[in-house]
Simulated assay, not measured.
Amino acid sequence: MIVLPTAVREAILERAREGRPEEICGILGGEYRPDGRSRVQGQYPAENVAETPRMRYEIDPEKQLAVFKRLEDRGEEIVGFYHSHPRGPARPSETDVAAATWPDRSYLIVSLDPLEIGSWRWRTDGEDDAGGDGVDERFERERIIAD
């Protein structure tokens, strides 16, 4: 589960509304727990640099590293990431599944139509072998606790 303060939730929703029709994105900082209850303390907006920002999101790697450094300086950990689906559901798309790379981190997704927030943890299990079929990768829905 993920604990999401109301102020952070509202800030993300406002960014998603303002960013429409493009997807917005950012990083969630706070207290990270891989198998338990992560707690968000702040959201760190990022520019969506994807070639097709209406259909996907991408954070510039250099800017992402700068945010990671800022989190570290503030004593926060990477809890996960967030982005919006202006015209889609609050669940991972095939593009989101293909792009997920942070095991056990939360991926918060905002749908604007209908207005909904969902959170998912990226899970990887097993050992990769030469054929690449030994690893089970998937999103698992997680409960959002308002704080």
Score class of each variant (00 low, 15 high):
I78A: 01
G134Y: 13
R33P: 03
E94S: 15
A146T: 11
S106W: 05
V40E: 06
I59M: 14
R20Y: 15
E18M: 13
S111I: 01
P5W: 12
P61A: 07
F139A: 11
F81D: 02
E140Y: 00
E23D: 01
D113N: 01
E31T: 07
E47S: 07
E94F: 11
G134V: 06
F139L: 12
A11G: 15
V110K: 11
L108Y: 09
A66I: 00
A66N: 01
V40N: 00
S119Y: 00
G118P: 01
D129L: 05
S119G: 14
Y107N: 15
E127Y: 10
L65D: 09
L4Y: 13
E77M: 09
L71A: 06
G19L: 13
R54V: 04
Q43D: 02
E58D: 05
Q64H: 10
R39Y: 03
A46I: 05
R37G: 00
I78S: 04
A66D: 08
A130T: 08
V110G: 10
V3N: 12
T95D: 12
G118R: 04
G131S: 08
G134C: 02
H83E: 12
G26F: 03
R87G: 08
E116R: 02
K69Y: 09
C25L: 09
E14G: 03
L71T: 00
A50F: 05
E18F: 09
T101W: 13
G126D: 11
Y107K: 05
F139E: 14
S38R: 02
Y57T: 00
E137F: 01
E31K: 04
E94R: 15
V67D: 06
G126R: 04
I109S: 08
G132I: 07
G134D: 14
K63P: 00
D125S: 09
N48A: 08
P21A: 13
R70D: 09
R91M: 14
R121L: 07
E47W: 05
L112E: 04
K63C: 03
Q41V: 00
Y32P: 08
E51S: 13
E18N: 14
R141T: 09
I59Q: 03
T52G: 04
V110Y: 08
P114Y: 00
L13Q: 12
I78M: 08
P45W: 07
E51M: 06
M55Q: 00
L71S: 06
R20D: 00
E72M: 04
T6Q: 13
G19P: 14
H83Q: 06
G80N: 04
E137S: 12
E116T: 05
C25I: 11
E23H: 12
H85Q: 09
L4C: 11
E72I: 03
S84H: 08
C25V: 14
G42L: 02
P34R: 06
R143V: 08
I24G: 02
R70I: 02
I78N: 02
D136P: 05
Y44M: 03
R56S: 13
M1T: 13
D60Q: 05
G30T: 02
R74L: 11
E94A: 15
I2C: 11
E23Q: 15
S84W: 01
R15Y: 10
G132C: 12
Y82E: 06
S93A: 15
